[in-house]
């Protein structure tokens, strides 16, 4: 018999990573930019977290350093997209490569040593903030406060917003910093609690950023939708061992989350439109 409670709680760490990264991206996309670079930012942040925790002996310093490194990548993205007017897709994809490349070089410098862990208290508080506090705060800020109107106006029509007097560049830089911080936190958290637990193993932390991008769409650019989607995808991950026990080959079980997500992407938008939840016009329109 499957232990449902255990399964539900096993999904939490996965869901936390997704929720943090996807909320960060959601906020940015509401401000009219889409950063495809999450995969690289998470990876770099994890690598930086590993080395700084190892060298300082303090997981908190590691965590902060990871966040900073991710913010730097987000701002680099901003420099290209805002200052130079470069294409968002190519810039974001380059960030992926840059982050993975640098992250791996940095992470490998730990030699695979086990770093101090953040401890259960910090772990739990991150889980709770990511899955409960953050979505509510983001919802209130984005949809119930005038600052949220400022941010969302950019996701609707930046030219009009500029004409209304919205400080476009400033707002977007702020959104990029929030994006970088949340995605960076996701990467640090992933390093500490991920599959290998506070130990760097190259190329073991891939796919998280990409899936988070998908979760933004599954949650239809709404903080509450995103947190639900994060948890469901987390659950899919947690269920993989279960699938293997019923005789599904591990290679196929590994693929199920992606398969489910692609199907969900295809059917979900009609549902949300019925609930009058709309994606930011500048980012996605059907």
């Amino acid at each position: 018999m499957v232990n449902i409670a255990a399964l539900l709680s096993q999904a939490l760490p996965y869901a936390t990573v997704y929720a943090l990264a996807a909320q960060g991206e959601l906020f940015l996309e509401r401000a009219g930019l889409f950063n495809l670079g999450l995969e690289g930012m998470i990876y770099l942040s994890a690598g930086v977290t590993a080395i700084i925790s190892l060298h300082t002996g303090s997981p908190i310093y590691g965590l902060l350093a990871g966040i900073v490194s991710s913010i730097v990548l987000a701002l680099l993205y901003g420099f290209f997209v805002i200052t130079l007017g470069a294409d968002q897709a190519v810039t974001g994809l380059s960030i992926v490569f840059l982050g993975i490349g640098l992250g791996d070089v940095i992470g490998r410098a730990t030699g695979g040593a086990v770093t101090p862990s953040i401890g259960i208290l910090a772990d739990d508080s991150i889980v709770v903030s990511a899955l409960l506090v953050l979505p509510i705060v983001l919802y209130l800020v984005l949809f119930r406060s005038w600052l949220g109107y400022v941010v969302r106006s950019l996701g609707e029509n930046a030219a009009t917003a500029r004409a209304l007097g919205v400080p476009v560049t400033l707002t977007r830089i702020a959104a990029l910093i929030i994006n970088g911080a949340l995605v960076g936190l996701a990467g640090s958290y992933l390093f500490f609690t991920g599959p290998l637990g506070s130990r760097w193993v190259s190329m073991s932390l891939l796919g998280w950023g990409w899936m988070s991008l998908g979760i933004v769409i599954l949650g239809y650019w709404h903080p509450l939708g995103v947190v639900v989607a994060s948890y469901l995808v987390g659950l899919l991950y947690a269920m993989r061992p279960l699938l293997e026990t019923v005789g599904i080959p591990s290679s196929i079980a590994d693929v199920t989350p992606y398969l489910v997500v692609i199907i969900a992407l295809a059917v979900i938008s009609a549902l949300y439109e019925k609930m009058n939840i709309k994606p930011p016009t500048a980012i996605w329109s059907r």
């Binding site: 290209f80 130079l84 470069a86 810039t91 490569f97 840059l98 490349g101 070089v105 490998r108 190259s202």
Partner: peptide, 24 residues
């Protein structure tokens, strides 16, 4: 002894700097 993924970063650097300089 250098991580082979470092070349990924180099590739990204090329794309980004060519992107920046051609735009400018």
């Amino acid at each position: 002894g250098v991580s082979d993924s470092f070349v990924l970063a180099l590739e990204a650097i090329i794309v980004l700097s060519v992107l920046a300089f051609t735009t400018l």
